[in-house]
Amino acid sequence: MYASLTWAVKESLHTYIREVGGAVIPLQPAQVETGTATFPCEAAESNAGRTILKFMGGIRFIAHQGLLDVTVREPWLDISYSQNSFTISVTGNGVQSSDSGDRITIGRGELPSHFAASGESSDIEVLLTAEGATIFRYYPSGIRLAPLQLQRPPK
C-alpha cells in the first residue's frame, strides 16, 4: 500500500495565486509545502487487474476575493494494469462528498512501463480531462497537469 500521493495539481496555478496575493490552503489531513500537496492514503481496493487508491484531504486555490476558487478534495487514483493507464477523480467545486458517489475524473494518463512490475513511482504525467476542465475553468482539456508521485511507507 502507498503512504501518500504528492501532487502540485498545476504548477502555473500555484505561481499565479502567489503572484496575485491569493492563497493555497491545505484541507486536512493534506499538507502543502513549496507548491506541492501531499495527500495521505486512506484505503486501497484491488481486484481483477485494477487498484483504486483513495487519498484524504484536499487543496483549495483562492484569489480575487473568491472569484477564482478551485478545490481539489479526496483524490482517488484508479489504476488499470491491463490497460497500463490510470484516472484521477476528486470531489471539489460543487461536487458533493465521495459518500454520495459524486466524483469528477479530472485527469488521466498512461503508467510508466516500470510501474506495474515495481510499483515504484517517478513523475507520472497527468492530462486534464473535459470533466476536469469544468473545475479548472482556466485550462483547456488535454493540457498537462503537474506530474504525480506515489510514496510507499518507510520500511
Score class of each variant (00 low, 15 high):
Tyr2Gly: 00
Tyr2Ile: 00
Ala8Gln: 05
Ala8Phe: 03
Val9Trp: 00
Val9His: 01
Glu11Gln: 15
His14Leu: 01
Glu19Met: 14
Glu19Ser: 15
Val20Glu: 01
Val24His: 06
Val24Gly: 05
Val24Tyr: 04
Gln28Trp: 09
Pro29Ser: 07
Ala30Gly: 01
Ala30Asn: 05
Glu33Tyr: 09
Thr34Gly: 11
Gly35His: 07
Thr36Leu: 10
Thr36Trp: 06
Ala37Trp: 00
Ala37Glu: 00
Thr38Asp: 00
Thr38Gln: 13
Pro40Leu: 02
Cys41Lys: 10
Glu45Gly: 10
Ser46Met: 13
Ala48Phe: 14
Gly49Asp: 06
Arg50Met: 11
Leu53Ala: 11
Leu53Ser: 06
Lys54Phe: 08
Phe55Gly: 00
Phe55Ile: 03
Gly57Asn: 02
Gly58Cys: 00
Gly58Thr: 03
Ala63Tyr: 00
His64Glu: 12
Gly66Asp: 07
Gly66Leu: 07
Leu67Glu: 12
Leu67Asp: 09
Leu67His: 12
Leu67Asn: 13
Leu67Val: 09
Leu68Val: 14
Asp69Cys: 09
Thr71Pro: 01
Val72Gln: 02
Arg73Lys: 13
Arg73Gln: 14
Arg73Cys: 12
Glu74Asn: 15
Glu74Val: 11
Pro75Ile: 04
Pro75His: 06
Asp78Asn: 10
Ile79Glu: 03
Tyr81Trp: 08
Tyr81Cys: 07
Tyr81Gln: 13
Ser82Asp: 15
Asn84Met: 09
Ser85Gln: 15
Phe86Ala: 03
Thr87Phe: 05
Ile88Val: 15
Ile88Tyr: 00
Ser89Val: 03
Ser89Leu: 09
Val90Thr: 13
Thr91His: 06
Asn93Val: 09
Asn93Arg: 10
Asn93Asp: 12
Val95Ile: 15
Val95Asp: 11
Val95Cys: 10
Ser97Ala: 12
Ser97His: 09
Ser98Tyr: 13
Ser98Phe: 13
Asp99Val: 11
Gly101Asp: 08
Gly101Tyr: 09
Asp102Glu: 15
Asp102Lys: 12
Asp102Ser: 12
Thr105Pro: 08
Arg108Lys: 13
Arg108Met: 14
Arg108Asn: 12
Glu110Thr: 14
Ser113Arg: 09
Phe115Gln: 00
Ala116Lys: 11
Ala117Pro: 00
Ser118Leu: 10
Ser121Pro: 03
Ser121Phe: 05
Ser121Lys: 04
Asp123Gln: 11
Ile124Asn: 00
Glu125Cys: 10
Val126Asn: 05
Glu131Leu: 09
Gly132Cys: 04
Ala133Phe: 04
Thr134Arg: 14
Ile135Lys: 07
Phe136Glu: 05
Arg137Ile: 13
Pro140Phe: 10
Ser141Ala: 15
Ser141Gly: 04
Gly142Glu: 10
Pro147Asn: 07
Pro147Lys: 07
Leu148His: 02
Arg152Asp: 02
Pro153Val: 04
Lys155Tyr: 11
